[in-house]
Amino acid sequence: MRKRDWLGAGALVALLAALPLFLENRYFTGVFTVCAIDGIWAASWDFFSGLSGRENFGHALFIGGGAYAAAFMNGKFGFNPWWSIPVGIVVPAALSLVIGFPTLRLRGPYFALAMLAAAAIMQQFAVIFWQYTGGTEGIYGMSRLIDSSLGNYYFVLATLVATVAVLKAIAASRWGRILRAIKGDEGACEAAGINTTFYKIASLALSAGFAGLGGVLFAHYEQAVTPDDLDVFLSISVIIMVYVGGIGSIWGAACGGILLNLLLELLRGLGEYRLWVFYIILMLVLFFMRGGLVAPFWQRLQGSRA
């Protein structure tokens, strides 16, 4: 990363940290908390699918997996909410291995469809086994991780920064290079002696773990978990966030997550027309800014100075 990138990142984080202080308002703090969580989800999706080119249409499986892990640990079994974090990382990672092993070694759309189906199946399980999962109303009354909403926000923000930093570091390393080569031509990558299946599975597990972490933070913020957290709408929203932010850049994806949730909240005043306007704005962005909004914008800024 160049010095300019460090400065830009620092300024952005400082801004995100400072905003709630000016606004002093649980509502805004709450909105930004969810924005940051969306950023974690988007970054985790981008790390696997953005780099390797294998699109994951069921990211909600990992998000909801982490959220439900937290719901069971804390909501049902009464554990201290901090225990949700390791469990909420391991469970989705394990799920990713179960789905990834059989499908990632195959070419074609099998992986994408398998992920879509797996998330839908999990969602149905959550509804069908309502005696254990609370059905459509889910599990509620969970504890917060940190009582103060500002404190909770800073913790979530710190997690976002750590997530982007870690994933970006891996993406810039040999591992990330290999993922990009897999995206370029997987067969040729194997012919270059690389065990592509291993890298795909390991990357998916990492993506799943971070998504689950975001799911845990979300569950303990909302203090409730429902089958909506496994919904295809969530999977698609995450993909849209990444595309708007700039696919493959990881930090751009995170910004896409932040922006999209902000936009959705800002449109609250439109009442019934909220989602309608939201989707129209998205379509316009996707049509006219193919590479995304955030990452290309930053690059263009740099270009004009150079």
Partner: peptide, 18 residues
Amino acid sequence: DEGMDPQLGVSAINKLTS
């Protein structure tokens, strides 16, 4: 609007109160 969505509901409560 709280819709039928807990997330929307929570943010509606936060907005109305805070």
